[in-house]
Design a protein around this nucleic acid. Sequence first.
DNA 1: GACTGTGAAGCCATTCACAGCT
DNA 2: AGCTGTGAATGGCTTCACAGTC
Lengths: 213, 213
Amino acid sequence: MKNLKIPEATVSRLSVYSRFLEEVEKRGITSISSGEIAEGIGGTPAQVRKDLAYFGEFGTRGVGYNVHSLNEQMVKILGLGKTWKVILVGAGNLGSALSQYKGFRDRGFDIIAVFDNDLKKVGLMLNGIAIYPISQIADFINEHDVRIAIIAVPAAYAQDVADTMVDTKIQGILNFAPVVLTVPEEIETRNVDLAVNLEVLSFNIESNQRATN
Amino acid sequence: MKNLKIPEATVSRLSVYSRFLEEVEKRGITSISSGEIAEGIGGTPAQVRKDLAYFGEFGTRGVGYNVHSLNEQMVKILGLGKTWKVILVGAGNLGSALSQYKGFRDRGFDIIAVFDNDLKKVGLMLNGIAIYPISQIADFINEHDVRIAIIAVPAAYAQDVADTMVDTKIQGILNFAPVVLTVPEEIETRNVDLAVNLEVLSFNIESNQRATN
DNA sequence: GACTGTGAAGCCATTCACAGCT
DNA sequence: AGCTGTGAATGGCTTCACAGTC
């Protein structure tokens, strides 16, 4: 296995390529060039080729890439060849939306349980998924071999929730709470900060204003 | 006005610093060093200082930063000194969660209307916000001076929605649909791609596995 | 002629290291 | 002594430009 360090930006784009290729394949297109991919995902042809080159030679010079087999490669590289069992912590608004989010299931992420600290919710179903008490997180993870957790609780509780997951089989946490989680380094975390995105927009809008005097 | 080009990464961190400072201020702390900020948000002291230095000299050598006045500066720089009127398009699960998301209002983003193409929803309220038909987006934006829109519709409709906003007063779009929007360059867009984040996690988990043979 | 794969160059962001202030 | 502000060094990602292949 070729083992250069892969830029994180490349990995995110791989995911975007893959979804784009799926859509292109549905339209019945079988062959595609780096330029066409770039156009579809808002990038440059050179970048597409460089990204792919980290993992192998998937194209044919003078011709382009086979849509289906390129996507197969992407799926394999991203580790999407199987179904990932995922748990979701937090049955509030955001949790509820995420539990139903089709984009996860479509890409092989299956939310198999929801946890909440509100005992009035425990025992109920959230969009067809059973709600368990927070206290059962660790046992559930180990029993069901869950490797990915999504945290969608208020900021004040997020670290506590993360703490319940250390020394379990969890290997990755997707955190929607706007705080930095402190976890052992063998657990991979990623933060999605919704407010930050709006604030960057707001900053950029203001700067555009300033630029166009 | 100092007009170097500000790295986008710096801008996102400013937003994180600001929220962290607010929390620190609530705890009654009045002074803070770059090292303490770095620890709180998961970064390095040098980076904190560099980021701030793009905008001015906010600290006192040998002492640190005044928590309150540094946050005031952050808020001003980010353009958060006022309330932003925001519209939300898409009253599905995700839209519903976003309409209630406290993190937006806390930071000055006020969702004043929701739009949906499902006429059964039009006229109803979503968490206290009225739902209008998609056809009224452009008029509403111009009448109410809305500058930011959040798109939370299925991928297939996102571009159509964006199209209704060109040549209105909209200046920024936060897009949750997993597609690249094509809009005139005076409209600033940002994409939040939920599935991509899980896929990067999945890739990293698999690589960790490979690394620890 | 068209398009990929890739070393080299260029650009941007982070980190270092220290002078300057309190 | 402690901590900021910043030029210089480093590291990483993107873009260029072209040799290689069909």
